[in-house]
Design a protein around this nucleic acid. Sequence first.
DNA 1: GCTTCTTCGGACGGTCCCGTACATAGAAGG
DNA 2: CCTTCTATGTACGGGACCGTCCGAAGAAGC
Lengths: 234, 234
Amino acid sequence: MPAKRTSIRFRNQLLQVMSADDLALLQPNFQPVPCERSKTLESANKKIEAAYFMEHGIASVVGGGSREVEIGIIGYEGVTGLPIVYGNHRSPHHTFIQVAGRANRISAAVLRSALEKSATLRALLLKYAQCFHIQSTHTAIANARGTIEGRLARWIVMAQDRIAEKELPITHEFLSIMLAVRRPGVTEALHALARRGLIRHDRGIIVVIDRQGLIERANGLYGVPEAEYLRLIG
Amino acid sequence: MPAKRTSIRFRNQLLQVMSADDLALLQPNFQPVPCERSKTLESANKKIEAAYFMEHGIASVVGGGSREVEIGIIGYEGVTGLPIVYGNHRSPHHTFIQVAGRANRISAAVLRSALEKSATLRALLLKYAQCFHIQSTHTAIANARGTIEGRLARWIVMAQDRIAEKELPITHEFLSIMLAVRRPGVTEALHALARRGLIRHDRGIIVVIDRQGLIERANGLYGVPEAEYLRLIG
DNA sequence: GCTTCTTCGGACGGTCCCGTACATAGAAGG
DNA sequence: CCTTCTATGTACGGGACCGTCCGAAGAAGC
């Protein structure tokens, strides 16, 4: 066997579980890019130029026109640009970096042709598409039934899954936009979580203390999409 | 050209826009079935036996465990069983008939093998999957920001799109579960819509009077998924 | 060290919606 | 016609959250 195989290990979960052949289709076309906060990856109703296999940081998908609402988040477990997987060039959503990090960028055209060539790559990315779909349906459920405190607890745990550190660099203002609530509402809910000893927080920082307690506080809003991810992707 | 072509016209939009070859893969395996109200098409976390190309009536997809919340609805514009298209056997959602009608049933195994054979069939159903995904993201947005009256107006217009008649057979109780609100809240919101002259309502019946007015009342919550459907499927 | 900007803490009246309870009125079946 | 069930109308107190405003307290630049 030729020793051509580059031994770069990706943190991205999709790239990790991908077959060597599929990875070989993508990897030569990867462009490692830093993702600074607020960087736009996709604009609503504009052609999607590239997909980003996240390595670090968090991307957020939002929709709803003027006053945007978060639909889902993507970290090193996933990839942006799902409309490409669906066979499309655009979507009415906006995707941007919420927590700085880095990603492997691949152009939409290359990804599209790789998807045509490989049925197994298609299968993997479609499974991830289902995971992301389920994540957004559970956002819908959380928005319908959850209190601010519960939704916030869910968001913090989901973000921690993707950061893998206990410190989340995020402001109340940002969270209030994501959850579509009033900014002081976020402040109060964070205090409530802190009073219960589940988090600490400082200017622009939230520190997870009791992850399991947060999950319980989320009152059933956390867990289902995560279990589906494990089942489908592992 | 051999006159083998059966000239049955389907009402289902996906079957209408499908190529003759793709239709030929599916149609011999169709089983026309009546869909009475409350019939379960898919259960949460159970193997999906079949997909249903709706011809009449409305199927509803819900999730969220004990107190379920509606994620999206499917009528003659679509098909149930999207997890099959995603390459899966199950999902954490529950799908059932909300307004009686009928559908063309096709077993999951047959649909799966047809999807493997035909790239164009895959492409079409994936486009519909994206449409449904966008529908559920907009349910998330509506749940986050809409008033009961607005969300109700959205739901009524969406249902009317799929019923194509002005009369919707639906009870307040049912709507309250779908929207995850209190039952008397639905009663009051329906009165408000009626006072504005947008609907009439009777025991178990809602009659659309001013569709455009309802859309305006939905305050931006209606329209985006519908426009995407037109763009992607036509 | 002082100004300026960002971020957070706290407060106000007001609104929407909740949980609950109860009464009425069609429908359905004897 | 009478009973029973379902569906709707209405009311009450209470809680969650809203829009808004203002002050304080770190962070950042001059």
